[in-house]
Design a binder for these strands. Sequence first.
DNA 1: TAATTGCCGCAGACACTAAG
DNA 2: CTTAGTGTCTGCGGCAATTA
Length: 216
Amino acid sequence: MIAPRRFLPSVNSLLAFEAVARLGSATQAARELSLTQSAISRQLKTLEDQLGVALLGRQGRQLVLTDAGKSYVVQVRDILNKLAQASISARTNPTAGALNLAILPGFGMHWLAPRLRDFAQTHPEVTVNLSTRLHPFSFQNSPFDAAIHFGKEDWPGVGYLHLMPETVVPVCAPELLGAPLENAAEILTYPLLHLDTRPRGWSRWLRALGVTQDPP
DNA sequence: TAATTGCCGCAGACACTAAG
DNA sequence: CTTAGTGTCTGCGGCAATTA
């Protein structure tokens, strides 16, 4: 859910705060942003009033980040960087995007990696970000669009596609023959494609990667 | 010297009303 | 119902005086 507009600080006030935090001075921040020091001071006050939190401590003529300010500026920088990148991307290539995929190391190396070159040539506008995840995770708290994983359909709140069946053959030393393979049934699992439920328009890129319900 | 604050003007958003 | 005009409110930034 998008936050109501009244709860969102203005970009200008965030830029002013970030510059003051980085340069340590409202005067220098004003110089950098081509504003007056007065304007910077007002932006800071507006931001602090809006948040209800002191971001900067006034020690004489010095502006010093409070603990809350130190924490906040890290997130503000990240958001401003993402905003800048998104703006540049929108300007230079409006159809571009990124597919964030959580994969298993072996699957990524042997199955997916060989397909990436063809995909990159066919879709140069799309950036594929691969990260390995060995265990189930929450899509709500992660940046991933989709995940490829072995196991059962036991992830809550996501859709599934069976990518391919796989048979695992246990191999052991002769002296171990005869020992009960208690977990043999669990070893025989299927790789599943776990999909995030949020619509992001990445499904066509997954198809282009060959990650479909009916693999080649 | 640097930050804060009062005052002012400008621009855009918004609500309301009247005309077609 | 839609559109245009008008008044009001709000945000933003500059100038100048004040404060620490």
